[in-house]
Design a protein around this nucleic acid. Structure first.
Length: 519
RNA sequence: GGCGCUUUCGUCUAGCGGCUAGGACACAUGCCUCUCACGCAUGGAACACGGGUUCGAUUCCCGUAGGCGCUACCA
């Protein structure tokens, strides 16, 4: 059994955008499959026709494409075990429901949802199981002829799994060890509903995993309580020998407070919970995505992988290849992990800093466009290009002292906008402005502007040659106030460099504007 | 309510009977400096509680408390 080829699957429901927790589950499956030279299957579990959302399937595929999580077979990937969309496997499920029925491991039930609701309202903690099933309307209690007549008449029914009570069912979990649950607390789960001729998750899942020769089921902890049911199902089919190994992952929790991470938390705290931006086809609501927010897929994978797993040492920055090599289910933690979006941004910062210029400049172009910096006849392409080069030099520049503290390319704009546009006003409350532009500063700047006016060689060296002696003799240190004038705040490169880049006219223009505005 | 999982700094975690309980994010301070930041250095910060087992428990067992999940003709 240990010689079995590793085959794992990620099987989402197309009920909406892919949750970031689902991305992590898929990532773990991917790492596990790759490490063992096995297959990763992409299966669509669309057995709930009522919750189907158009576009969700494409969205999920596009998400994984962006993240670089590759599937070996499945919907849109091909393979020999298809179809991989459960709604296209009705014949198969019908057949296996029949097997269970024949063996007396399942039965037909006619209780309507309304009737069940009524019973639940009446009886506290009602459960459809060994204690109650003989009081319900099903093939166990109704005469055979009536059952046949009802079915023939087209009365909607469901098929329920007949659970024998009083048995301790053991699930051998690769993360949690042996988990024991007594079958008495399990209810007779619905396996199939005639109304839409579709199975429920439990039946479809077991049948598909078996037929697709899945060797390991790596899924979220929310499935742990129903794992014993799945074990029982494998047994009922006689597939226990080839039953996959289970691994139940801890859940992703909200950053603050209690509970599972939800879309709401993202909206409230300002971070995405979906890989890609999602436009809800019904409500028209837009949910932000990691891609659009400016995250790098490598950073997302790295960060997500470490939420519930670690290589057992202090290593944090890992490429996909490294993670494939180091991943270990037995090193997964058992408790839920709060989602720390601040650290997620730090991971992005790390990857962004390592990104070659070529790869981040297109994103910066988009930022420029958003801020109205475009090449126009008035503003020649050459000028804009020069400014951009300056930004690149400023950001990527020689030596560490020039590296900007940014997590996203969009963070660049407030840090570099002075290359493109002059200050339009000054924040008198700004600490830097307040500290460096006081009584008398305007006079000093007037003098300094006069000195600059006399500079003929408008280069860093040329300015130095004239200004440094002036600073020496007058004792006036113009830099911070000059910075206020040219940048508007306490940021930017060396002042001579900045002035040289802006040019004499622009530099003096900004200075006089500051002198006149701040007084 | 029932059942299950879980519990180390604020957060993610290392630890698999004997450690000054380690790292990262965040935070604070310092260095650097014409600003911001980067970088570097330093610092504060944790074994939920109570019983056992043991020469010795963060580590093993049992309770308690907290957290999370499941309890649908959803997955």
């Amino acid at each position: 059994m240990s010689e079995r080829r590793v085959r794992v699957r990620f099987a989402p429901s197309p009920t909406g955008p892919l949750h970031i927790g689902g991305v992590r589950t898929a990532l773990y499956n991917y790492l596990f499959a790759k490490q063992h030279g096995g297959d990763l299957i992409f299966r669509i579990e669309d057995t709930d026709s009522g919750r189907f959302v158009p576009g969700a399937e494409d969205y999920i595929i596009e998400s994984f494409r962006w993240l670089g999580i590759e599937f070996d077979e499945g919907v849109s990937f091909g393979g020999d075990y298809g179809p991989y969309r459960q709604s296209e496997r009705r014949d198969i499920y019908r057949k296996y429901v029949g097997v269970l029925l024949e063996r007396g491991r399942a039965y037909v039930a006619f209780d309507t949802p309304e009737e069940l609701d009524a019973v639940r309202a009446r009886v506290e903690n009602f459960q459809y199981d060994a204690r109650t099933r003989m009081e319900m309307r099903n093939s166990l209690t109704l005469p055979k002829e009536e059952v046949e007549r009802l079915i023939a008449e087209g009365t909607p029914y469901v098929v329920r799994f007949l659970i024998e009570p009083g048995e301790d069912v053991v699930v051998d979990d690769m993360i949690r060890g042996r988990v024991t649950i007594n079958s008495s607390i399990l209810d007779d789960k619905v396996l199939y509903k005639s109304a839409d001729d579709l199975p429920t998750y439990h039946l479809a899942n077991i049948v598909d995993d078996h037929l697709m020769e899945v060797s390991h089921v790596i899924r979220g902890e929310e499935w742990l309580p129903s794992a014993p049911l799945h074990v029982l199902l494998y047994r009922a089919f006689g597939w226990e020998d080839s039953m996959p190994r289970f691994a139940h992952l801890p859940l992703l929790l909200k950053p603050v407070g209690n509970g599972k991470l939800s879309k709401r938390d993202g909206d409230k705290l300002g971070f995405p919970v979906f890989p890609l931006e999602w436009h809800d086809p019904k409500s028209g609501e837009v949910s932000s995505g990691y891609r659009e927010r400016g995250y790098l897929p490598e950073a997302v994978n790295n960060f997500l992988a470490l939420l519930g797993w670690n290589p057992g040492n202090d290593k944090e920055l890992m490429s996909m290849e490294e993670m494939v090599e180091l991943f270990d289910l037995s090193k997964c933690s058992k408790n839920g992990a709060k989602f720390d979006y601040v650290k997620a941004a730090w991971f992005n910062h790390q990857y962004l800093m390592r990104l070659p210029e070529m790869e981040w400049t297109p994103a910066f172009d988009a930022v420029l466009r958003e801020n109205g910096i475009v090449s126009t006849p008035e503003r020649e392409a050459e000028v804009v290009r020069m400014m951009k080069l300056k930004v690149i030099e400023y950001v990527d520049g020689q030596g560490n002292r020039r590296k900007r503290n940014i997590s996203f390319v969009s963070d660049l704009w407030p840090l570099t906008r002075f290359f493109f546009v002059a200050p339009v006003g000054f924040d008198a409350e700004d600490k830097f402005v307040k500290k460096n532009w006081r009584e008398g500063t305007a006079d000093e700047m007037r003098l300094f502007a006069g000195v600059l006016e006399s500079v003929e060689d408008w280069s860093v060296e040329g300015m130095r040659a004239v200004c440094d002696p002036w600073v020496e003799t007058t004792g006036i240190k113009p830099w911070n106030a000059w910075r206020v004038a040219l940048v508007g705040m306490g940021q930017g490169p060396d002042m001579y460099e900045l002035a040289a880049f802006l040019g004499k006219e622009e530099t003096l223009g900004r200075m006089w504007f500051a002198i006149n505005t701040l007084g």
